[in-house]
Amino acid sequence: MKRLLFILLIPITACAPWTRVTGPFEDPAHHFSVDIPDGWMKFDSERYLLISRDGPFLQYILVEDRNLEAPFTHTKRRMNRDMLPQEAAEVILDDLSLDRAVRNPQVLENAPARIAHQDGFKILFTYKNGDGLVLKTLYYGFIKGRMFYSIRYTAAERYYFGKDLGTFKKVLAGFRLILDSSDKILEKIRFFAEL
């Protein structure tokens, strides 16, 4: 995670790819939509949606859709569509525990959750970054078709995490899937198969 922030920092100072955007976010490159809260800024990236109010070192919300075949940063494990939410959460935790920039990760909660009407998981954990700052992350994720979706909120544990948790919950509640035509066909097949 620290690596992610480091990568972000350079562009912040160089060419300011942060833009103030409010309201619905929909991008043809992604299979989801969310409502960006008032006063938050969006970082331009094709891989994920990253928003922050006070800067990513203090708090950010990251929404991502990734192909199940896509490799993780640290673990070579892969997700697959037959995985239970708990098994998907294990892969995320394995990847996290192998990140040497994440010091002393402590999982406070790992439980099933419903996200956008899908069965998934939520993980609440704390960790220290290289400067000793304690950060807290609330991570939601689920597998749908050939994609893994995640929406997470990370902030400095002291003051900032609590301050914007409510905002994150609103973003989470507004998270919607945008299924492409092949996904819709599969959905219909499954629906009729279950009848």
Binding site: K2, R3, R100, A101
Partner: peptide, 8 residues
Amino acid sequence: FAQSSGPE
């Protein structure tokens, strides 16, 4: 350093 951080 841009590629990694900490002990890594």
